[in-house]
Amino acid sequence: MGVAQNVVFGLVTGSYIAIAAIGFTLIYGIVNMINFAYGEYLTIGAFIGILTVGVLPLPLPVAAVVAMVGGGLVSLLLARVFFTPINQTGPVPMLLTSIGLGLALRNGIRLTAGRGSRYFDTETATLRFDGLPALSVGPVDLLGDVFVTSEQLVVVGCAVGVFVVVHTLLTRTDVGIAMRAMGDDESLARVRGIDTQRIRDNVWVLAGVLAALAGVLLGIQTNVSAGTGFSQILQILSAAILGGAGSPYGAIAGAYVIGLVLALSTVFLPTGMTGLSSAIAFLILIGVLLVKPSGLAGREVREA
């Protein structure tokens, strides 16, 4: 398999990581917490979608919308019960709370949904580009045969749609502008008459919606089980920090970097060591935190 094919895979992986990472980074920037339970939000969204398709015979796009609405509500509910009451305690207690909540949610899902993995039944059309000439550098083929499935196009298309919507929301609507103001300086935002708690609720809903969409896309592209969200959280987190925690645009860039690194490392790593690709993503994360802690765009995380 050539590099070009892996670039396709990387863009697809980057796309759903990006959707989730936007939500993660908004929570980080505005609620000021690292939400370790966020991976579970993806799982919950995906399972709501699968339940909708399975129980009510609704078409997939409708099920995705149902999942997004459900994800938003679940996110708001969890925030109101678990996070809003301890908003003033600082980042570490909130991080620890989210770890506990994540553990409980993950096992709750496992208990109700079982250990098996589910997926969305979709018809796949595959576009092949076989005529490309081989462009070999050493043992690595730079072009080679490329295929794109319709599912992959859906994932990337959804991601682009999300970027446009989030950008519009953040720049053109009052709520979005208030969100950015709160991300910059919460006290100043409150002085200007912004209802910070309402904005926080909005952020939770938005993050839940995005997580659910990412979860459904994961279910379309591969499959989901109770552990899916947890296996994604470190990549989402890496993407968000790589991009500069708190910056949605940085998170998008970070997500594609992570996605491409994960995919391309399978080309360059010897066979049998492809499992190392996730370690490489974390190495990038650590490297970024040490060299340029503010990420590609964003704020200072170093104290001294």
């Binding site: 917490m33 690292i34 980042p91 570490v92 991080l95 987190l237 920090i241 994360l285 650590i286 935190l289 802690p293 995380v301 170093r302 104290e303 001294a304």
Partner: peptide, 10 residues
């Protein structure tokens, strides 16, 4: 030297 929550992540 990183902030608390980022030390946790590293």
């Amino acid at each position: 030297r990183l902030r608390d929550d980022f030390l946790a992540i590293v």
